[in-house]
Design a protein around this nucleic acid. Sequence first.
RNA 1: GGCGCGGUACCCAAGUGGUAAGGGAGAGGUCUGCAAAACCUUUAUGCGUCGGUUCGAUUCCGACCCGCGCCUCCA
Length: 494
Amino acid sequence: MSLRLYNTMSAQVEEFRTLRDKQVFMYACGPTVYDYGHIGNFRTFVAVDMLQRFLRQSGYDVHYVMNITDVDDKIIRNAARDGVSVQQYTAKYEKAFLEDSAMIGIEPPKLVRATDHINDMAEFVGKLLAKDIAYCSDDGSYYFRIAKFPAYGKLSKKDFGGMLDGARVDVDEYDKDSARDFALWKAPKPGEAFWQTSIGPGRPGWHLECSVMSMKELGESFDLHAGGEDLVFPHHENEIAQSESLTGKTFSQFWFHVRFLLVEGEKMSKSLGNFYTLRDLVLKGYKPSSIRYLLTSVPYRNQLNFTFDGLKQAAVSVDRLRNFRQRLKDKNFPSGSDPAIRTLAHETITHMREALEDDLNTAQAQAAIFEMVRLANSALDAGKVKQNDVAPLLEGLSKFDEIFAVLEDDDRPKMKAVFDWAVGEGREKEISSELREGIRSAELSDSDIEQKIAAMEGARKARNFKLSDSLRAELVAAGIMIENTKEGARWRRK
RNA sequence: GGCGCGGUACCCAAGUGGUAAGGGAGAGGUCUGCAAAACCUUUAUGCGUCGGUUCGAUUCCGACCCGCGCCUCCA
């Protein structure tokens, strides 16, 4: 079997094929760096990250490019408001985006900045102009002539035949031939930042940026283009129009769109007070791994209801997986193997693969790993797991984690980084007691902890339970979880 | 108004024309000095409502109710 993916262009699930054997050339529309990224942004980026991870797990050589939009109207306005250059303004949020992406386990794609490609974009407009696909208005702005691209609307399935000019846009406000025509290049208004180029001064339109950079990095035709569902129209429709009317070739074979999420059952919006950046959530004390897990637990084309209760549940689920892995690593097992266990591990790997090949059904892949965990835990309790069974089980976990990336327990340093950032930004007030609690266990070193545990174990052996309980209570209060097992005490940071 | 998606247990959430995955929470139990972890049992004759097709529908069709998205730059 092989991967089947929903393609927005065909509006159905198709077998995923690439132009070049075992190589994938893919592009995702990245962030506009005018503010910190919110969890809706990261749902999309995490979904594309999982796709990319799964393609690599499936043996593809993945060329994954994401753009950073570091120039647009809002950026220019905000930079002017703050009295800083566009570059100064965006640098802060670009850095934040990279940190946040790493925090939530996104493997870095190749990033390309709009401002590094201004001349390429101007040239692109020049080529469209030469073909009479673009035209210049009196103020020096350039527009795309949609009448020159009859396929316009094929991605969003819109019929523009009946749409009248002026129906929704005040034509007089713009110097356009047709209301549908969109801006390729915007001439600067007085006082605005601009670039001097071969087609005159100004700044690129948003759609242009992605066409130019994706084709420069990946070729005129590439395999897959991704983004949030809102980008289908007009952004991606416009990218197609620009690119295909210039090259005459199919721009992207596959179009991958991620559904918006809801927060506590409602659309996320600032006015509803349910608008959260990744950092907001960490400040509230939630772990990055919980956030990632919750975002991955609903297949990308379904609406995901992001709730605080869900985050708490996600944390428990992640702990369950981590505990299981720890259990496999800690114990000494008798030699030999149990064929049933090996079979279980291999079937789990197969089930996960089948689930993900079915348009990335992450919920089913998770069900498969939990099935394995439950049965293997049961076998562990019964003493049926042998030395040679450990590796296959660990392989199952690792296949899972190559996609989901939540097993590594590195939440604390990440949370500490957010803590430090908040302090640096003068936002201490937003640091919750839960976050303080969450990073408290970092104050004790491993050797401190092990010393205390040795003392506790000694007291237990001497059956001085009063002393051992008080030592344990001390550690628990410091955020250290302890389990007394037959093989000795096991601990982890909460 | 046009086009599209969805409504599954207390919560989150898969899925299928043949009798409801998984996780969390709750209850009971096993293990344990206690705790934790883990395991076992239990929690939807039921899948928005009402009709229809069918031997049989949660799954297909229709109507209705509710939620959500896009319809010019919000992931």
